[in-house]
Amino acid sequence: MVNDADIQAMENIIIEHAGPMGKFVIKKAIADIGIDPNSYGRDSANKLINMVLERSIFDTAKWDPLRKQILSAWTQ
């Protein structure tokens, strides 16, 4: 399950690296997955993170540290 606070935390992290268009990438990725984030299992949550990173962070070397940062923000 991914709640609104988790989405906001991910948005803040993505905007810090990809600028203001980052929030639209998250909205589009959620729409593409087609499931309410509140109903996400672990696979869907990982899929969302990967999709957002692939579409907004163009330096692939940043994907792993950002993935960890997002997951860390979600567990808090």
Binding site: A18, M21, G22, F24, I57
Partner: peptide, 13 residues
């Protein structure tokens, strides 16, 4: 760099 990423995202979308 943030603005460049945003421009690239805008082009993608």
């Amino acid at each position: 760099l943030r603005m460049k990423s945003s421009l690239m995202i805008a082009t993608q979308m």
